[in-house]
């Protein structure tokens, strides 16, 4: 004996219903499933970003160190001036002239240093390969004899990126093993 007509309709309805729900389940799990992050994912992104910031700060610190050396050298070459107040004589900056006394022409070391240092530092900053470091971004303060403090005007912007892009994983065969 076979199912009657109502029975057949119910049977096919059940089959289609089950298939439909399966397809819906698969579609939902593959499309919206990724919207919810893995536990700890956001924290890892943040730590990674802070790590990148740490690297950028290290780069800035080192650049500042070399810029100081370069600035001292540059100023020494130009008699303490970035650009001389009372002109120059065959490339030598003048500290006094016939008409102007030494207190009118002598260089303001601190101001000249700050200005030349900023210029030198700005030559380094755009060369960081990963982080954009803004130029002319530091208010400088000179303390004691060799202490230079730079207060940043604007913050560094570190993008919070995707994971795993730079990871390499492969097996080294026994033959090529690390010896």
């Amino acid at each position: 004996m076979k199912f009657n007509k109502t029975g057949q309709v119910l049977m096919y309805g059940l089959i289609f219903g089950l298939f439909g729900s399966l397809i819906t389940y698969l579609a939902i799990s593959y499309t919206s499933g990724r919207e919810f992050s893995q536990i700890g994912q956001e924290a890892l992104y943040l730590i990674k970003a802070s790590n990148k910031a740490e690297q950028a700060l290290f780069y800035i610190d080192q650049s500042a160190k070399y810029s100081v050396q370069q600035t001292i050298y540059d100023l020494a070459q130009k008699g303490g001036f970035e650009s001389p107040k009372c002109g120059d004589y065959f490339g030598y900056s003048l500290w006094n002239t016939k008409t102007k006394k030494i207190d009118e022409c002598s260089p303001d070391y601190k101001e000249n240093f700050k200005s030349a240092f900023s210029g030198n530092l700005d030559e380094y900053l755009p060369n960081h390969p990963e982080v954009y470091i803004p130029l002319n971004n530091y208010n400088l303060q000179l303390k004691n004899q060799l202490e230079i403090i730079g207060y940043a005007i604007s913050d560094l912007e570190i993008p919070i990126g995707e994971l795993g892009a730079e990871i390499e994983q492969f097996e080294i065969s026994e033959k090529d093993g690390l010896q």
Binding site: Q70, P129, E174, G177
Partner: peptide, 24 residues
């Protein structure tokens, strides 16, 4: 560099840049 024969199953590479006295 002198280690017993080993087999590496995971390798991680990280890089940090440091400036030189020449800005670029």
């Amino acid at each position: 560099e002198i280690t017993p024969p080993t087999r590496a199953f995971k390798i991680i590479n990280v890089a940090v840049d440091t400036p030189t006295s020449t800005p670029n």
